[in-house]
Each structure stands twice: as C-alpha cells, then as structure tokens.
Amino acid sequence: MLYLRAAAGLLPTRRPSTLPDRTLTQSGVRVDLAHLAAYDRVCGFRLSDTLPATYPHLLAFPLAMRLMVGSDFPFPVIGLVHVANRITARSVRADAELDIAVHADNLRPHAKGRQFDVVAVASHGGSEVWRGVSTYLSRSASSAGASPAGASPAGASPAGTSPAGTSPAGTSPAGASPAAGGGRGPASTFHPPPASAIWRVPPRTGTDYAEVSGDHNPIHTSRIGARLFGFPKPIAHGMWTKARCLAALEGRLPGEYTVDVAFKQPILLPARVSFHAAPTGTGWEFRVDGKRPHLAGVVTPP
C-alpha cells in the first residue's frame, strides 16, 4: 500500500514548500528473533543477542515511508536520492522493547535541488539508544539532466548513490574527497586503496535484502524495474552495503559509536567489489570500491 501511495505521488498536485511538522511514532516494538537471524545472514552479521547498529533502521523504515508518502510532504517519494546515512548506536539487546519516532528535518538548498533529513530515534525505558539520520536529495527540474554521478531515483530506498555534498555530520566520510580516491573522473583514473577483502555480491542480494528490510523498490529486485530508472541491472541497497561493512568490522567496534557513510556509485548485481578498512586511532575508516567508488564511511566515538 505504501508503494502504491508512492506511485500516486507522481501525479501532478500542489505540494507544500516546507517539511511537515509532525512526528510518527510506534511504541512497544519488539524484534522477531527469526527475522533478526535472517537479517544477520543476509548482511553477514554473526548471530547475537544484541542488535546490529543498522537493524533499527528497518524498524523505522515503515514510519519513514508513511511520512514521505503523505500529502503534506513537499516531494514525491519516487525520485528521491538517498545520499548519506548516519547512525549513532548503543548496545541494544535483541529482546528490548523499543519506542520508535520518525520526523523530517533540515530542509536546505543544494546545487542540484534541495536536501532534507529523515531522523529516526529508538528509545528503551525512556532513554534514547539509537538515532539514524538519512539524508535525501530532491533534484530540481532544471538539474534533472545533471544528477549526481550514478545517482539512483531511489523512491525512499536506501540505494547506493553518489554523495550530494557532506555527510549528515557535516564532514566527509573517508575517501569521499577526490584526493582520497573518491573523485568522479573517468573510471580509468580511479585507483582504490589496497583491499582488506574481496566480496562477491550475488545477483539475489537485492531480493534477499528486500525480503528482510521490507524495501521492495524494483530497482533492487527487478531487471525491468531497474531499466525504467536507467540501470542496466538491479542494484544493491545502499543500507545493505553499509551493514555488510559493519559486519566485516564486527568484534572490533566499541559498544557505542557513530557510523557515517556517503553513498556513491550503485553496485550493479552481480558484482565483485573490494572492501578496505583501516583504524584511525579513535575509530575506523572504510570504503567499498569497484571500478568506481561505491561507499565511503567512518566510525567515530558517539
């Protein structure tokens, strides 16, 4: 139903010029342990009695979609580009009862349109234990032919796309600058850092993640759907890529941290990509690359 409402949002209509001043909430959310186990398998996490830092994003996703398909939202959800995501997380037990709240914030101009944040907060016992900030770009008509390199009309989907500026924290994640190998020049001039690991991303990654995340955007699950948005093949969800990076660092991360990523070129499925991670003294820098950069991120203290 949410995707039908998203499609209906493409019909011409008058929209407000500001973000809605409302917060959607859901109380008493409990994790289905079988679902959590399926998510862990898809993203590469070990089975644990604590939640991966990216898992509460799934719990908040239905509320975020409800917010963005509302008639009081200034942009149609189909066509939005997810350009960055920041998560601040504490160790949360899998059996914890959570209260989820989602709102939109910080509408601001961008060279290619306008950006805004969707802020999701999970609380336990009245205390905040998780916060996620997803930054989206709505491209203006005048810049429709000049979208960020590799950007996908993601329709609120966390698809891997080019960065549209800075991360939600206001700082570029590792490798986001051209000097660090995150430039947008020809693929032949791109030289990623030495790989810590090589990952083979199978063609079913999009459908597998769609099943556990609830994000069934056809650019991730259907060749026809991907082609309708200019991709030759389905692309991996950006939030799957972020989760896969954190899974690779599992056991080396503190109990509390902030992880900030910029989504770059989408990963066309199937793919062979390199993962690079390096300690920074206070955290980690990491990135995923193919012939072009796909994701760059940094883990810092909260």
Score class of each variant (00 low, 15 high):
R114Q: 12
S147H: 10
R131T: 12
S147W: 15
A120K: 13
P153C: 03
S162T: 09
P148I: 09
A159T: 15
A111N: 09
T166I: 10
S123P: 07
F116Q: 03
V129P: 01
R131F: 06
A164I: 08
A104N: 05
N106M: 02
P158I: 10
E128C: 12
F116H: 02
S157L: 14
V129I: 08
V121I: 14
R131V: 10
G150S: 02
S140Y: 07
A146D: 14
G113N: 00
V102T: 06
V102G: 01
W130K: 12
R139E: 06
F116S: 03
T166S: 08
G165E: 00
L107T: 04
T161H: 10
V133I: 15
P109D: 02
G125R: 03
A156H: 14
N106G: 01
G155V: 07
T166Q: 08
H124G: 05
Q115T: 11
A151W: 04
P148M: 09
A159P: 04
A144Y: 11
T166M: 10
K112Q: 10
T161C: 15
A141H: 13
G160W: 07
G126M: 05
P109I: 05
S143R: 15
G145F: 09
Y136R: 03
G165S: 01
H103C: 12
G113E: 00
A144P: 08
E128Q: 15
N106T: 08
A101F: 08
Y136D: 00
S138Q: 08
G160R: 12
S140I: 04
A154T: 11
A154L: 05
S123N: 06
V121W: 01
W130L: 04
S140P: 04
G155F: 11
E128P: 11
G165K: 01
G155Q: 06
H110A: 09
T135C: 12
V118K: 07
S140N: 09
T135G: 04
S152F: 11
D99F: 01
G165I: 00
S152K: 12
A122S: 04
G132R: 09
G132Y: 06
L107Q: 08
S162K: 06
L107R: 09
S140D: 08
G125V: 05
L137A: 01
G165D: 00
A156T: 08
W130D: 02
R108C: 07
Y136N: 01
D117L: 01
W130R: 09
S157A: 14
S134G: 11
H110W: 06
V129Q: 02
D105N: 10
D105P: 06
R108G: 03
A154M: 07
A120W: 07
L107N: 03
A120E: 03
H103N: 12
P163Q: 10
A101E: 11
W130H: 10
A120S: 15
D117N: 02
G150E: 00
S123T: 13
N106K: 14
E128S: 13
S143D: 12
A154F: 07
A111M: 10
V133E: 03
G145Q: 07
V119M: 04
S147R: 15
V121M: 03
V121Y: 02
S127T: 15
H110D: 08
F116W: 02
S142H: 11
H103W: 11
T161S: 15
D117T: 00
S134L: 03
A146T: 13
G113T: 00
N106C: 04
R108N: 05
F116D: 00
H103R: 15
V119C: 02
R131L: 05
A156K: 12
S127C: 09
R114L: 02
A154R: 07
R108W: 06
P148D: 07
